[in-house]
Simulated assay, not measured.
Amino acid sequence: MDYRDRVFIAVAEHLSFSKAAEHLNISQPAVTKHIKELESRYDIGLFERTGNKVYLTRAGKKVYNAFKQIAAQYRELDFEMSQLHDSVSGEFIIGASSTISQYVIPKTIASFHKRYPKIQIHLINGNSFEMEQLLLNNQVDIALVENNSSQAGISYKRFMDDELIVVTGANSVYAKRKTISKDDLLHFPLVLREQGSGTLDVIKKAFTQQGIAFDSLNTLIHLGSTESIKNFLQDFDGLAIISEKAALSELYMKSLVKLKVTDFSIPRTFRAAFKQGHKSRLVELFETFLFSYNF
């Protein structure tokens, strides 16, 4: 792939000439020169500059999508060529939701790397909606998400089960209750994940199915990660609803207490998401490994 094309991708993804230069370890004037040469090649502006901010033009978006597809084809070619030498190598990018990236997938990636040490894996994390957008924009090759909703242009496959549980801090006034009712959930203070979170999406649907209006919950605050919620609970007289897999260490150490809710549970599945259409051989290799992995 032409180096100027790689420079363009870096600017498009950072939306900054200076950050792209830092990422590529070249000077900012060099970045500017490469972009001007590319704009001259197509005889059209690819970026719109407003003050210190940079935006892709309509033409820039078309070029970006095309270059990402070309980059994926190069990665697939590298993989196929390596197979001819009986030495599997290549590179791909995983986008994973926060819970999966922190508590589920690292061991899988480590095991995959042990088996295929010449394959480079890049892991990007965020909430499920963000990962789906990166997938649609060709910025990741596969997305691992924890939401229940689906987006057009994406196909989904379940790879493991999870459960959302109600927890409270060990020093909370609710820690000795052990069991609570669904009505208690309406009144006790709650801390939940942020909008766009797959966990929050599942929680909303679970309450709707139980005939409970989500807006009627006593939610005091939304936080951007499960880790921040667990830390918040250490000095909060209230509850949280988080992944059981994310709370295993704290439950074992007894810094968090799991509360059973009578006649109420929130099971969910973790899914692998793929952009509909062509799937690279390298992604298929990881997909096969993921679905045979013993979690």
Rank of each mutant, 00 (worst) to 15 (best):
D2A: 08
Y3S: 13
D5N: 14
F8E: 04
E13A: 02
F17Y: 13
S18C: 10
N25I: 05
N25S: 12
N25F: 11
S27M: 06
V31C: 08
H34A: 11
K36Y: 10
E37H: 01
S40I: 00
D43F: 00
I44L: 07
F47N: 06
E48I: 07
G51W: 05
N52R: 11
T57P: 10
T57R: 03
R58T: 15
K62N: 11
F67Q: 08
K68G: 05
Q73K: 11
R75F: 09
L77E: 11
D78W: 04
S82W: 03
S82N: 08
L84W: 04
D86W: 03
D86N: 15
S89E: 15
E91P: 07
F92E: 03
F92L: 09
I93V: 14
I100N: 03
S101W: 01
Q102R: 14
Y103G: 07
V104C: 09
T108E: 10
T108N: 09
I109K: 09
I109S: 01
S111H: 12
Y116N: 05
P117W: 00
K118H: 14
I119H: 02
Q120A: 14
Q120S: 14
N127K: 03
M131R: 02
M131V: 01
E132L: 11
L134Y: 14
N138F: 14
N138G: 02
A152Y: 10
A152G: 05
K157A: 14
R158N: 13
F159M: 09
D162Y: 02
E163G: 02
L164E: 07
V166P: 06
V167P: 00
G169A: 00
G169D: 02
A170F: 02
N171K: 12
S172C: 03
Y174F: 12
A175I: 00
A175Q: 03
K178N: 05
T179Q: 06
I180T: 02
I180S: 04
D184L: 00
V191C: 06
V191A: 06
E194Q: 13
G196Q: 01
S197M: 07
I203H: 03
K205E: 12
A213V: 15
S216R: 00
S216G: 10
T219P: 02
L220G: 00
L223N: 04
S225I: 01
T226R: 00
S228P: 02
K230Q: 09
K230P: 01
Q234P: 01
D237G: 04
I242Y: 01
S243T: 00
E244Y: 13
A246Y: 06
L248S: 11
L251A: 09
L251W: 03
M253R: 13
K254Y: 04
K260T: 15
T262F: 13
S265D: 15
R268Q: 12
F270H: 11
R271Y: 13
Q276W: 02
Q276C: 11
Q276F: 07
K279T: 15
K279D: 07
S280V: 05
R281D: 14
L282N: 07
V283K: 05
E287D: 15
F289A: 09
Y293W: 10
